[in-house]
Design a protein around this nucleic acid. Structure first.
Lengths: 230, 230
DNA sequence: TTTTTTTAACGATTTATATCATATTTTTCT
DNA sequence: AGAAAAATATGATATAAATCGTTAAAAAAA
């Protein structure tokens, strides 16, 4: 993780967007920017919490391990999104990891400065609150899905939410390059099972593949898979 | 759900505790109290959101359905805790249900008043933020557990967290009366599987039963079940 | 109290999904 | 460019946990 100087874009930065105009110079003075490579770790479960991160460009996965092998991707943070904030008010140890899945630039502010920002900017506090409530709803939905929805439904759900977050390329593919292993981890299943399920979906003409890229052909049927018990 | 008048205890109420002293009379003027019976529904997934609830006494389960039969209990709200707040800033429809598992009294304030309270009380806003971050950590932990931890570990985890939240009775049993079905829903598994797993644990002298009540005998071994892959 | 309903107990069977094994292709590194 | 490593593809097998089926016990309602 290499520190870099960039021309700040105060429109995409989560902090700048939500704070008082008068506070922005202070933010810029405190913010550090880092370049991350694909696959590079930003922090790991168990590391000491030093501050809060924001995605400037690229994509970061927020994930959690179980044992040595199994991991679950909780969410992807993309341009403008905050991450690492779940560590606030905790015991100062990350309970999750963050790793770049697409190279980019991330910003960092230390915990003290972040807490000051919260106190000085009531609106930011309120917006962050709403953001967290949304996160919480998504998280609880995911918990339920993993608990009761079959893998096929979870993969369908994962693909739909990836499409919603990252949009489509000009030729209609979901605009994120994700390894099958990451897609499996995001769906909360093993690589092999996800592989099989995706094959089924291609057979059933719900999806189209092109290398790693996936295109949703039959959105309705995919949606139905995420609804009630089959 | 019957409206009742109670003598307000401004120390247990989540709102009163975290707001400015000057704001308390306003809160008391807006707060409505309801008596709920065991098993009574407070709100259901799909209902319109009208406001935010607090537990005055009793225990409320926050749960989510999947299909007709399966449910997952996300958490239990006990004395002083807020619930229903995940609906803020959403589309005005509850994505979860809340049901009393132990009779008690719950308080309610409407959304408008709650949002005003947030704006008027910066500290409350900050405390709620910290509370939500904690909720989020717990929720993500649960998601990972349901995804990768075997049922036995999840039941162990459920029992430990129930013990932490509700404490012990004088004779050492976890101080909550929960149906086996609710324990199963909280663990994210079926009744039968949880039943078998609990039997195993009794055999292995990790637990002791007395009717519905459960006592943890070997806390260390139970804890180990929640750690790495067996 | 008696009846009805709900919750609990527990064995048998099935099924979804993980695990294992191995070949092949693609990416990354030197 | 060539070697090493990682990611992908796919079948066979194992197993955890769900589903089904039935009986028994406890609560709740009449």
């Amino acid at each position: 993780m290499k520190k870099v100087s960039i021309i700040e874009d105060t429109d995409t930065c989560f902090l700048c967007k939500n704070c008082l105009k008068e506070w922005i110079p202070t933010i810029l003075a405190h913010k550090k920017n880092y370049k991350v490579k694909k696959g590079e770790s930003i922090f790991k479960e168990g590391d000491a919490v030093k501050g809060i991160f924001f995605v400037n460009s690229g994509i970061v996965k927020v994930h959690k391990r179980w044992g040595a092998e199994k991991e679950l991707i909780l969410r992807f943070a993309s341009e403008g999104m905050i991450f690492g904030h779940r560590a606030l008010g905790g015991d100062g140890i990350y309970t999750i990891s963050a790793t770049a899945v697409q190279a980019g630039i991330i910003s960092f502010v230390d915990t003290d400065f972040f807490e000051t920002t919260l106190k000085v900017n009531a609106d930011f506090n309120y917006n962050l609150l709403m953001f967290l409530i949304h996160d919480l709803r998504v998280s609880e939905q995911k918990t339920r899905n993993v608990a009761h929805m079959p893998v096929k439904g979870r993969v369908a759900d994962a693909l739909i939410s990836l499409k919603n977050q990252f949009g489509l390329t000009t030729d209609g593919f979901i605009n994120i390059e994700l390894s099958r292993q990451d897609l499996a981890s995001f769906s909360g299943a093993t690589y092999e099972t996800v592989f099989r399920v995706i094959n089924e979906m291609v057979q059933e003409k719900l999806l189209k593949l092109s290398g790693k890229s996936i295109s949703i052909i039959n959105h309705d049927k995919l949606n139905k898979l995420t609804e009630e018990a089959a």
